[in-house]
Structures are given as structure tokens and as C-alpha cells.
């Protein structure tokens, strides 16, 4: 039996191996994804993002309980940062979700970002496909704690939950651009804290500045306390309502097309890049180019344009 067969049958170890394969970009990665692709497209992909310490993992623990009550199988991909210095990572998100460790309908996988910017890992999109093909109804991707620009989750998900908490001071101002624009549902966690009402008012104000469209109306704001298990019902209702609306307006299809377009472009660019690097051994040339620039024998754009002409000629010859 192949690895792809094991994944499609939902075998735990096959799924684990498959994700490691794509994560380490080992031989067989492309074949595996191509074999699984026909079985994908059924799972709903939820993104869960927000600043560090917002309580994303604790909230996710509660959401998992609700998914299970509704009879859905759920997979979690929890991304944490890799150290840019050592490459190591401490993956601690599942600490808050271990109550689901023995549930056969829940699969939790931690992923290190491995230098990928954007709040997720380079292999997260493939891992989503693996869970989708393995028959999970919901795939929930938890980003690492994000700041202003880690918005790649929006390109990967059918629906994004942006989790905010009181006590971050004026941070919401800073969050206005970028991340504040990607939430389909705004979740204010730690609603037990006094300052949560003020945060709510600020969020409402920021959202009132947005331009809603029929496809993408003003996002709901939901107050929850994951720790005290409050407001989770409201959140579940909001998720269901939004998903239904997006399905009706064609928003989900639009996002999936956009996602495919982006993935194709990325793959195309990286493959073309690899091909050129291999053909003309750019790394070997690079030293000479740097020398010519540092000694001011040449100017940067003149050099690069001349080299590009040369690269295309080389490619034509081969």
C-alpha cells in the first residue's frame, strides 16, 4: 500500500509521515500531493490568527470540543516560530489541547515556521491538502503569534478568525493595516477582563471605517472567554452563519480559486528559479559580480541587466 493510500484511509501514521515528507521537501513530495489531490476539496479550512498571548490555542481547544459535539472530524495545524539563529523551535501549542489527545476524531500537528515569513510554514498548504484527503471535515490552521504583516493565513483559509485581547494598549491602532483587514470574524478573547468593553468599542470603530460589500459584509465581533468557556456558542453560530453566507455568495469559491492561482504562481516561480540556478550556476558567478561592484568597476543595474541577457542566451543555447 502506498503512503497516499494510507492517508486516504485516514491512517494516523501515514498522515504523520506524509506531513514530514512535505515539510522536509523529500523526494516523492510532488507525487504524493498529486495522488491526494483528487480527494481534496471537501474540508472547510479555518484560519486562527492574532497576536502572541491572545489565547489562540486555548480557544482552539474549546472549538475542537464543539466540532466534535457536532460530529465533525477536525485536524489542527499549529504553527510556532523557528529560531532564526539555531533553526530550533519549541512547539507548545498542543499543551492547551491535550484533552483531545486520545480522541480518534482529532488530529493535532505542530509545525515550525522554518524561516517562512507570513505567519505559517512553507509546507502548511500541502499539510492542509493531506488532512483534507484524509477525510477531516475541518482543518484549522493556527498561525504563530502575529504582528502587522503576517497575513498569509488569509490566502489559505475559507474563513479567518482574528483573535484579539484587551491589554495590548494602543496596539489595535498599529494593527489597523494588514492583519486588521483579514478577519472574517473578530474574536475578543478574555472578555472576563474589564478592558474588553473598550477593546470592543475600538474594534467596532475600526470596522466601521471599512467598506463592506455584499460578498464580504462587516465582520461580526464576538466576545468570548476561552478560559471560562463563555461565548463559545455565539462564536460557533457566527462561524456557521458566515460559512453559509460565503457559500451562497460564491465567496468561498472565489477564495479557493485565488488560493490555487497563488500556489501555482509560487510553484512556477520557484521551479523556474531552480532551473536557472542549476543551468547557469549563479552562485559561482555571484562572487565575481560582487567584486566588480565593490571595486566600483561597474554599476549595479548595468551589471544585472547585462547578466540577465547573458543568462537568457545561455538558456537558449541549452
Amino acid at each position: 500500500m502506498t503512503l497516499a493510500d494510507g492517508v486516504r484511509q485516514g491512517q494516523q501514521r501515514a498522515i504523520a509521515r506524509a506531513i514530514s515528507l512535505v515539510e522536509n521537501d523529500l523526494p516523492g513530495r510532488e507525487e504524493l500531493i498529486d495522488r491526494l489531490y483528487p480527494s481534496t476539496g471537501k474540508a472547510v479550512v479555518l484560519g486562527l490568527t492574532g497576536p502572541p498571548g491572545a489565547g489562540k490555542s486555548t480557544l482552539l481547544d474549546r472549538l475542537l470540543s464543539e466540532e466534535r459535539k457536532a460530529g465533525r472530524k477536525a485536524a489542527v495545524i499549529a504553527v510556532d516560530p523557528s529560531s532564526p539563529f539555531t533553526g530550533g523551535a519549541l512547539l507548545g501549542d498542543r499543551l492547551r489541547m491535550q484533552s483531545h489527545a486520545l480522541d480518534p476524531g482529532v488530529y493535532i500537528r505542530s509545525m515550525a515556521s522554518r524561516g517562512h515569513l507570513g505567519g505559517i510554514a512553507g509546507a502548511t498548504a500541502d499539510a492542509v491538502k493531506i488532512f483534507d484527503a484524509a477525510g477531516y471535515d475541518r482543518v484549522i490552521v493556527e498561525t504563530l503569534g502575529v504582528g502587522q504583516t503576517e497575513i498569509e493565513i488569509a490566502q489559505l483559509s475559507d474563513l479567518v478568525l482574528l483573535v484579539l485581547v484587551p491589554g495590548l494598549g494602543d496596539e489595535i491602532q498599529a494593527l489597523k493595516a494588514g492583519i486588521m483587514e483579514i478577519g472574517d470574524i473578530y474574536v475578543i478573547n478574555k472578555s472576563d477582563k474589564d478592558e474588553s468593553a473598550r477593546l470592543r468599542a475600538e474594534v467596532d470603530y475600526v470596522l466601521s471605517l471599512a467598506n463592506p460589500t455584499p460578498e464580504r459584509p462587516v465582520p461580526p465581533v464576538v466576545m468570548v472567554s476561552a478560559l471560562f468557556d463563555r461565548g463559545i456558542d455565539d462564536l460557533i453560530d457566527s462561524i456557521a452563519g458566515r460559512l453559509q453566507r460565503y457559500a451562497e455568495t460564491g465567496e468561498i469559491d472565489r477564495r479557493r480559486r485565488l488560493r490555487l492561482r497563488r500556489e501555482l504562481r509560487q510553484q512556477l516561480q520557484s521551479k523556474i528559479n531552480d532551473h536557472i540556478e542549476r543551468k547557469v550556476e549563479i552562485d559561482r558567478q555571484m562572487d565575481q559580480w560582487v567584486e566588480r561592484l565593490i571595486s566600483h568597476q561597474e554599476t549595479p543595474y548595468a551589471l544585472i541587466n547585462r547578466q540577465i541577457e547573458w543568462i537568457f542566451k545561455e538558456m537558449d543555447r541549452s
Binding site: S82, T86, G87, G88, A89, R94, Q98, S110
Partner: peptide
């Protein structure tokens, strides 16, 4: 310490 040594470490509590 293992993270600092460059490994990916999962901690479950």
C-alpha cells in the same frame, strides 16, 4: 535547551 541546540521540540505539559 534542545530548541537552542537546533531541534524541533514538542512539549505537551
Amino acid at each position: 535547551a534542545l530548541k537552542d541546540a537546533g531541534y524541533e521540540v514538542i512539549y505537551t505539559g
